[in-house]
Amino acid sequence: MNFLNFNFKKAFILLLIISLPLISINMEQKKVQNSWFTQPFSFMAQTVQNGFSSLSRGVRSTTAQYLNLINIKSENAHLHKENSELKTRLNQFSENQNELERLRTLLDFQNNTKMELIPGQVIGRDLVADHNTITINKGTKHGLRAGQAVLTVSGAVGYIFKPQYFTSHVMLITDRYSVVDALIQKTRSHGIVEGKNSETCVLQYVERTEDVKIGDLIVTGGLDNIFPKGFPLGVVTNIERKTKSASLIIDIKPVVDSNKVEEVFIVKHAALENFLEKTVDPQTTSQTGQQ
């Protein structure tokens, strides 16, 4: 047995293997100083940690922002929808209120007149822009016939000229085929109102000596047996005095804007009502009262 035959290489490796844990145990047991050899590693570690920490913060922040954005977006959409709903409700409410007021006025008018009135709704306009007619949703089925007056609370609209079973065509006073007996409310002089264009009519055959002024009210004359007497037709906007003509040519603007009319009344018996008496009566009664 060769005792001296000792493998030093193996022994060194074995020693190293054992000593390293021992050294580490020793280092654990002692207070670790910030030794010079640890500093570069510490620095590297800190740098890497700081880098990752910043990155993670950034990702978290971005994710949070994105998530917030999604939340904000959905919340915004929700609020937007709610706002739209409220706006719609508000519009509907004001529309209902307007309709209520309009219907109340119509009902009052219908209740306070001697005329038999049939309410109707405008469902169409004339196909050719040159003509001014409207179509209403009442026809011969509802007792309508040609030559009945069509009016609103504020003034005359036109008259029925082509009644059908379910609907009727109404010739507006602004149509160039329309002719309505009229009188100037102030002077009581008669004339004929003819349509001129969609916004104007002409009052003809009024004697040139008549005292007519811009702004005077023109009312229905009642001689045509279509309209009740004294119902507003339009207001004088222009007066033409031709030197060779015996009569005046007076432009009038209808009191009812036919483009905005939605609901109308059809008069079944126009002769039952006289609005001139209604307007005159209070004055005469007050005069007699003073006397």
Partner: peptide
Amino acid sequence: CLTRFSQI
């Protein structure tokens, strides 16, 4: 047919 929709 047009005259059904207009005063023309």
